[in-house]
């Protein structure tokens, strides 16, 4: 008799222990997208491509040339506005969005005391981190998707449905063009997830969200400065932003040139593994 009672008790606790992950993730995502700052950043990202499109139209074909070569073809290709927007936004604005999400996820909740609820709730630390990672991933995906959506729409309005032209001078069908934009969104999301993983790792060590954002963006800027110097070329393959600018035009070639994109994806995956393992290590050893 006692043996049976002994068997049942852990089972009951065990069931109570496991809140369904999907419900937790949904709650987290709802929580993130209700924050006004998230919405403001996303809105700014979304209106960026139309602003570029309008300024190109206003500048006229002659003056658009020179500085940003991808936009030279803007008057002729619907792909260059979304991809060119990615090129420009990847240097600061898109990483800012995920760094904010990563900072809010743990350090931010800690600072307002909301994380205590999570830590005493019957949710394992690993699952807590998984929920936070999903939250950051959702921000990255929505941010990249919004830029691509408004960018492609602007491009198609300016150039027409038959205006999906590659750098190689071929004209793509709508499905093919959409596929390339989809690939760009996936690739950018992975890069942003790498930024987010580093942000989460820093986020677990502090209760000041501003510190997380400052460190992540500072690190990005330092990386970008280091990648300018040829004498440090041995270091360049280790820097996450390496190839962020060069990768996007590869999607505008026909056939797509995949080597730079593959290399960038592998680099981002390495950063994700490092960032998340450090975040996990910190969060399981942390006291309530």
């Amino acid at each position: 008799m006692t043996a049976i009672a002994w068997d049942e008790t852990p089972e009951v606790t065990d069931r109570r222990h496991r809140a369904p992950l999907s419900r937790l993730v949904l709650a987290e995502v709802r929580w993130i997208f209700r924050r006004p700052r998230t919405l403001v950043v996303l809105a700014l990202l979304a209106i960026f491509p139309p602003i570029i499109g309008i300024s190109i139209v206003l500048a006229g074909p002659g003056e658009a040339s020179g500085e940003a070569p991808l936009f030279v073809a803007a008057a002729t290709s619907a792909l260059s506005i979304p991809l060119g927007s990615f090129m420009m936004l990847m240097s600061l604005f898109l990483p800012l969005a995920v760094a904010m999400a990563g900072a809010d996820a743990i350090a931010g909740e800690q600072s307002v005391g909301a994380l205590r609820g999570w830590l005493v709730a019957p949710v394992s630390r690993g699952r807590l981190l998984a929920v936070k990672v999903f939250g950051v991933l959702a921000v990255a995906l929505v941010a990249a998707g919004l830029v691509a959506l408004t960018g492609l729409t602007t491009g198609l309005i300016l150039n027409g449905m038959d205006g999906i032209i590659t750098l190689s001078g071929t004209t793509l069908g709508f499905a093919d063009g959409l596929g390339r934009i989809g690939l760009a969104v996936a690739w950018v999301t992975l890069q942003l997830l790498a930024v987010g993983a580093v942000a989460l790792a820093i986020s677990t060590t502090t209760e000041h969200p501003m510190l997380v954002v400052a460190l992540v963006l500072g690190g990005l800027i330092v990386s970008q400065v280091l990648s300018v110097f040829d004498s440090l070329s041995w270091l360049h393959p280790f820097l996450l932003p390496e190839g962020w600018v060069a990768a996007m035009p590869q999607l505008m070639r026909d056939p797509v040139s995949l080597d730079l994109l593959g290399e960038g994806a592998l680099r981002a995956a390495c950063y994700v593994v490092i960032g998340l393992s450090l975040a996990y290590a910190r969060i399981v050893t942390r006291d309530g």
Binding site: C270, Y271, V272, V273, I274, L276, S277, L278, Y280, A281, R282, V284
Partner: peptide, 10 residues
């Protein structure tokens, strides 16, 4: 976790 993850990534 920290050691394996970092070693794999690096």
């Amino acid at each position: 976790a920290a050691l394996t993850g970092t070693a794999l990534g690096v």
